[in-house]
Computed example of a mutant assay.
Amino acid sequence: MREVWTDRPGSIAELRSALAEALDGGRTVLPLASGSEGLLTAMAPEEPVEPGTAVIIATSGSTGEPKGVLLSANALLASATATHTRLGGPGHWLLATPAQYIGGLQVVVRTLIAGTELAVLPPGGFRAEKFAEAAADILRADGPRYTALVPTQLTRLLDAGGPGLAAARAFDAVIIGAAATSAGLRERAAEAGVAIVPSYGMSETASGCVYDGVPLDGVTVEIAGDGRVLIAGPVLAHGYRLRPDLTAQAFADGWFRTGDRGELTGGRLTVLGRIDDLINTGGVKVSAAAVERALGAVPGVREACVVGVPDQEWGQLVAAAVVREGGGPSAEDLRAAVRAALGAPAVPKRFEFVEALPLRGPGKVDRQAVTARFSGASPQA
């Protein structure tokens, strides 16, 4: 392998330069955060790079197994171009998420093809005042101004108000990705005047490829017989690093088989949850994502993660970790809401109220960590 970039302070300019070279047929870029020696080793840097690879995105995905997603220059450029077309033309961007992940890296690519300014949020925890400071210069620039955030970052801006929220309002579009945007968060953003664009995609699709339910130009979405979301188009990766077996499973006949369930209504995609998120409780299959949506619709619920916990009697119990605003609602309130929305089998038998959900990557909930929290726990009233 010929290029490794890490997130050393001040090195975004180095990444931008390396990406420009890679997009022009030069050295492959493997963006990694400092301290990612394990991921670097898993990418086998001593082995030759697969032909046609401009960028390798190292990811542990939802399974925790390291994988290297192989992206060509054509895929990256197709995604960036289609994004600008959908949003309203090339613009200036604020990089507010880590550049080793596809969502952040594509922000850099978009400024390269547009020849526009790139502002960068300084390292450290996300704070509304720092967001406002980082955005100041490009918000004074001519032309469209964009940024991309994860739901947690948007929530913090809405909570903080003040200069951070004012800056968010000033962007022509704020892409929300990496995790689902709840109905409650959509409503809060609309009420606050923030022009959000919820997106769906992954490293294998060179970042978001469906914006607010509608595929980008050139992208086709279909639903397989088992409810799985299938994606085709020029944005697709061409496989996984040194894993022809995984490549053959996921990529076939021009389609990428995602791990998500969905439905198409009038050409608009709704993602229903992971293929493997079904909880078999007492012989009834319950969608964890559906329970999360029901919980998220209850006033006072900020976030929720629902998992299946092994149980001798039921096979699996439905368990929910919930982040609340203030002191309510109670577990019984939440049970009643889920029962009304989805029926008795979907009602969580265990609740745990937490300050925040554990994360893996930018905005992605670590479901394995949530499941571990319930090990040995007893039902909470």
Rank of each mutant, 00 (worst) to 15 (best):
V120C: 07
E37F: 06
C305R: 00
T220S: 14
V298P: 01
S62P: 06
E14D: 07
Q106V: 00
F351R: 01
P151Q: 06
V309C: 09
L40M: 01
D311F: 15
G308K: 04
A134Q: 02
G25M: 11
V108W: 05
D277M: 10
I231T: 07
S207H: 05
P345G: 10
P122C: 05
G177C: 05
T83Y: 04
D137H: 13
T258I: 03
A128K: 06
Y211R: 01
L317Q: 15
A128I: 14
M43G: 02
L71W: 06
E37L: 05
A192V: 04
D253P: 12
G89F: 11
L216P: 15
G300P: 12
F171D: 06
A206T: 14
L185M: 05
L94D: 02
S72I: 11
L118A: 00
R268T: 10
I231M: 11
A82G: 15
L157P: 08
R257D: 03
P215Y: 13
A128R: 13
G68A: 09
R350S: 12
V307M: 08
I196V: 11
D142V: 04
P163S: 02
C209K: 00
R261V: 10
L158T: 08
P348W: 08
L19H: 11
E303P: 11
L95H: 02
A160E: 10
V229F: 13
P234S: 09
G162H: 09
E187R: 13
P329I: 14
E325T: 13
R241K: 12
L295S: 07
T83I: 06
I223L: 14
S182F: 03
G68C: 15
A237F: 08
V109N: 04
A170W: 08
L15C: 07
G10I: 02
R373N: 00
G193S: 02
I223H: 15
L165M: 00
A180D: 04
A346K: 14
G25T: 05
R360P: 09
W93S: 04
